[in-house]
Design a protein around this nucleic acid. Structure first.
Length: 788
DNA sequence: ATGAAGAAACGTCCG
DNA sequence: GTTTCTTCAT
């Protein structure tokens, strides 16, 4: 009551009492100020299920954080009564900060704000015994998972060449994403891998995990489900504990996460999901758009709030994005609007090939820089990372500083994983995977033969590898040299473990890395990146200091994927469209809008219309990253898998509203001459989108007059090469790929290891267009197929 | 055990 | 075409 009054008083900050109160609880006052009516509704609808459909740039995080602040401020919940789940650590961190800013230190203690995985871990550690684990279980990263799967496959006597561990990992992840334990996998699917052994292999893998006292990422959720199903009392305690549940990015939840949430939400039913069906771009990772589309059905009586007022982009940008996304059928429907000015139109520009596209794009950035635009407000968003190289090359040439966002993650780097393996093994001598990783890193002469012997010994004595090493050196099984090396290694780990009790763990880590010879290994290597690796190791030791002890650090590191990249600096940002979600920039370049690349052919092949719609959402995400300028471009020729092929402008370009788009002609360039646009599509007002045009385009493309890479050969080549060109280029390509044209004829029956049987629909040199019985139409190289 | 040559991938990527 | 992994030979 009195708190509500305080809220109402807040606007009249002239009152002495209000000012005095604000000095004590400064953030409690006025946190609702500045919310628009819809946002306010989303914040104040505290009871029962709520779905907040938050379009791009509509203040989603603000609603989420204000809602939490509100729940605490009006006394509905204490910080530890609230479960708030996000997908990424970054989002969780951000939310913590913003809540802190709203309600002060009171918000610091939100123990249940975190990623699905972090919270799952926390719950599992408390009840590990109930699902057959010890509470100090280790969490396996992707690389460990793969190594383990390889062992499982070999143990089952299956040819790992034919059935790579990667494929099994994908299948298992897929099952886990759908909440399926080995015995729940549908019979039809279980046979999909390794001559019908997919199911048993999954079971064997889980068995191995159990004996290693380890879990993978999927298990963090799956085992929670098992725990709750087998122990209703435990479930009830959590249902009771979480008075309010909030979920960020609900459109990205997979089935397992959905089940996890639903079990918890069945308690008090105060669940608030925030998301945007138009920004669901992780279907290939198991996300189910359906979860958000079905929310009202799953939670009857749900309040649905739409946030459609956009605070980020100008009118034209919003119009372009909205018109585009309106083509999707599977959506709840929102229309973004803004009070901002119309601003600049979205530009669309064609380039001759990807190299020219990169050049024009970077020159455009350069001139923006000259006009005084900060580079930190410029981003280039590509569909696939392979597009990055050409753009990077160009940026380097022009001397424009840039950074790549979402590159290899810190923890995934080899040196970090090696170092972590040392730390893991010190903390947990039973960590066999860590042992295998470092037994011969740095090289110390312990090769396959030694490892084999160790494995045998470990199995016979049923002890972990490190323990086996200590035992085996007392026998005659090994030759003298490896025996003494191994003895020394075993003693090292014993010593380090003791040291851990006596010294600060960061110092011990430093000692471990030095005494093991690991740092020395990189110091001796004089390659360009060795220095960077040593720097990363230092960073690792430094970050260790932020944790109370080594186990806490190891847990953190296994859950935290990205060491937050050093922000700031005047740099152009380069990233994939996926990595761009949640970010915004004044100017956004969107290159590579070509059918096949974007929308990506594979997405369409594998998921049909759903795939196309996801690609369209990706386009929508791309455009809505821009505050002031969105610049789309495409190339007419692009090298795909090393072969030059002609491309067609993305169908998405045609779907943009003409009134918000401006078609830019590439600046005239000496190497082309005035006739360059003769064969260039004019994106608007012509019929280039028609099948006929596309066929015409595809046909001429087969006989390109000049190969992209030779374009700069000068006017001589351009003028003279017009007639002689085609043969020359064709010849080069064929010679470089296989040496002979395809021996397959149209109509021939073939077999492809990945796609199975099919019949040849078209032949182009050594490229075949094949209609596969199962996989549909695909382009493949003839060297990958054999006669059926 | 280490380097060179050959083969295969090459879609997006969080925890 | 480029990169990365594997395999083979030394």
């Amino acid at each position: 009551m009195s708190r509500d009054a305080a809220g109402a008083e807040a606007p009249s900050s002239t009152s002495i009492a209000a000012r005095a109160r604000a000095a004590v609880v400064p953030q409690a006052a006025g946190y609702l100020d500045g919310l628009n009516p819809e946002q306010r509704r989303a914040v104040e609808a505290t009871e029962g299920p709520v779905l907040v459909l938050a379009g791009a740039g509509t203040g989603k995080t603000r609603v989420l954080t204000t809602r939490i602040a509100h729940l605490i401020a009006i006394g509905r919940a204490r910080p530890f009564d609230i479960l708030a789940v996000t997908f990424t650590n970054k989002a969780a961190r951000e939310m913590k900060e913003r809540i802190g800013a709203l309600i002060g230190p009171a918000g610091e203690g939100m123990p249940w704000l975190g990623t699905f995985h972090a919270i799952g871990t926390k719950i599992l550690r408390r009840h590990a015994e109930l699902v057959g684990l010890r509470s100090d279980f280790t969490i396996l990263g992707t690389d460990d998972q793969l190594r383990l799967l390889k062992q499982v496959i070999e143990a089952a006597n299956i040819d790992e060449k034919r059935w790579p561990a990667r494929g099994l990992a994908q299948a298992i992840d897929g099952w886990k994403n759908r909440g399926l334990a080995p015995e729940q996998v549908p019979a039809g699917e279980a046979g999909a891998f390794g001559f019908g052994k997919g199911g048993p292999l999954y079971a064997a893998y889980q068995e191995r995990l159990r004996t290693l006292n380890a879990v993978d990422f999927g298990d963090l959720l799956l085992l929670c489900l098992k725990l709750w199903r087998d122990h209703p009392d435990v479930l009830a305690s959590y249902q009771d504990r979480f008075r309010y549940i909030l979920v960020d990015e609900y459109q990205d939840t997979n089935v397992a996460q959905y089940l996890w949430l639903r079990l918890l939400a069945q308690g008090r039913r105060n669940v608030c999901c925030v998301g945007d069906d138009d920004q669901s771009i992780y279907g290939w990772r198991g996300a189910e758009v359906d979860n958000i589309l079905r929310f009202e059905h799953d939670f009857p009586g749900a309040v649905v709030v739409r946030l459609e007022r956009n605070y980020r982009s100008t009118g034209h940008i919003l119009a372009a994005a909205s018109t585009l996304i309106a083509r999707n059928e599977g959506r709840l429907g929102k229309t973004l609007h803004t009070e901002a000015a119309a601003g600049e139109r979205v530009t669309v520009m064609g380039a001759w090939d990807s190299e020219e596209e990169a050049r024009l794009l970077c020159e455009s950035i350069e001139s923006m820089q000259a006009r005084g635009e900060p580079l930190s407000q410029v981003a280039v968003l590509v569909r696939i990372s392979a597009q990055m190289r050409e753009i990077e090359d160009r940026l380097v040439q022009l001397g424009l500083p840039y950074r790549v966002i979402g590159g290899p993650r810190f923890y995934e780097r080899a040196e970090i994983r090696d170092a972590l393996a040392y730390l893991r093994l010190t903390a947990n001598p039973a960590d066999d995977l860590a042992f295998e990783r470092i037994i011969n890193t740095p090289k110390r002469g312990l090769g396959d033969a030694t490892l084999q012997a160790l494995h045998g010994h470990a199995r016979r004595q049923s002890v972990p590898l490190l323990q086996a090493a200590r035992l085996i050196v007392e026998t005659e099984e090994l030759k003298p040299k490896p025996r003494s090396t191994l003895r020394a290694l075993g003693q090292c780990f014993g010593r380090w473990a003791k040291l851990l009790e006596a010294q600060p763990h960061a110092e011990v880590a430093q000692t471990i890395l030095e005494e093991s010879g690991y740092t020395e290994m990189w110091q001796k290597e004089r390659t360009a990146d060795a220095a960077g690796r040593l720097e990363n190791l230092k960073e690792l030791v430094r970050s260790l200091e932020e944790f109370p002890d080594l186990p806490a650090f190891l847990e953190h590191i296994s859950l935290v994927m990205d060491a937050s990249e050093a922000e700031g600096g005047e740099r152009v940002s380069l990233m994939t469209l996926h990595a761009a979600k949640g970010l915004e920039f004044d100017t956004v370049f969107l290159p590579g809008w070509e059918d096949g690349l974007f929308p990506n052919q594979r997405a369409i092949d594998e998921s049909g219309r759903a795939g196309l719609e996801e690609e369209r959402r990706l386009a929508h995400v791309g455009i809505t990253r821009a505050r002031k300028r969105a610049k789309i471009s495409f190339a007419v020729n692009r090298r795909i898998h090393g072969l030059w092929s002609s491309t067609i402008p993305s169908r998405f370009i045609d779907e943009l509203p003409e009134s918000s788009v401006e078609v830019i002609e590439a600046p005239a360039n000496f190497s082309y001459g005035p006739s360059r646009f003769d064969r260039q599509p004019t994106p608007f007002g012509s019929s280039y989108g028609t099948p006929g045009w596309q066929r015409a385009q595809a046909n001429t493309a087969g006989q390109d007059r000049f190969g992209g890479q030779d374009r700069f050969g000068g006017q001589d080549r351009f003028g003279g090469g017009r007639r002689g060109g085609p043969q020359q280029i064709e010849g080069t390509l064929v010679a470089k790929s296989t040496g002979s044209p395809s021996s397959f004829a149209v109509g021939a029956r073939i077999f492809h290891t990945k796609f199975g049987p099919g019949s040849v629909a078209a032949v182009d040199g050594n490229k075949l267009t094949v209609d596969f019985d199962k996989a549909g139409r695909k382009m493949v190289l003839d060297s990958f197929v054999q006669p059926a």
